[in-house]
């Protein structure tokens, strides 16, 4: 049995079969949750935003046009939901890397330490750089889709990814040196 494409399911939701949204929820709640949690570092907020995305899909289902790639459409909604949230509730304190608990290198496995440092290095990136890395590395969006999402040229996407990776590498190195010394 082949799975129904997201686009077909969304068309059914648009035409009144709201229960089909459950299938899309099961497919997208984890990727969306990870997008938000890696971007904001806040689990509760990330869960709220995932709910908000699906509520918006219900509210704006009529605006879904046949032929629109669903993945790109839902990430558009997801980005807007986050922007709207922070417009309504400006962040009071940014989560600075210094505020995170120190890494204890001795006992823990090297990989665990690397994961923690990587997480911090990612958090140190400016939000737009972090976002573009998440979109292409974890959300499996194609560069063309990211370009459409961010409203920029394909080459700009490539350049931004390159710069984001360079900066991530720099931060990661600094953190590694910090724990080694």
């Amino acid at each position: 049995m082949t799975l129904a494409p997201d686009e077909d399911l969304m068309l059914q939701v648009r035409d009144g079969a709201g229960e089909m949204l459950g299938v899309l929820f099961d497919r997208y709640q984890t990727p969306l949750f990870n997008f938000y949690s890696k971007l904001t570092g806040d689990r509760t907020l990330s869960e709220d935003l995932v709910q908000e995305v699906f509520l918006r899909i219900l509210k704006y289902r009529q605006s879904y046009r046949p032929g629109t790639p669903f993945r790109a459409w839902i990430y558009q909604i997801a980005r807007n939901a986050r922007v709207d949230h922070f417009r309504k509730f400006p962040r009071q304190t940014a989560l600075e890397p210094e505020m995170l608990p120190p890494v204890v290198p001795s006992d823990s496995a090297q990989e665990q330490q690397e994961v923690e440092l990587l997480r911090r290095a990612l958090r140190m990136l400016p939000e737009d750089k972090r976002e573009i890395l998440l979109l292409c590395r974890f959300q499996e969006l194609k560069y063309e889709e990211i370009a459409a999402l961010l409203g920029c040229e394909l080459n700009t996407v490539r350049t931004r990814i390159h710069r984001a990776l360079q900066e991530l590498r720099k931060s990661f190195h600094q953190l590694t040196k910090g724990t080694a010394s």
């Binding site: 709640q29 949750f33 689990r43 990330s46 690397e114 994961v115 990587l118 590395r137």
Partner: peptide, 11 residues
């Protein structure tokens, strides 16, 4: 290395 970051599960 980014693939080392685990997939987090919502509650």
């Amino acid at each position: 290395k980014l693939s080392l970051l685990p997939v987090e599960q919502p509650g």
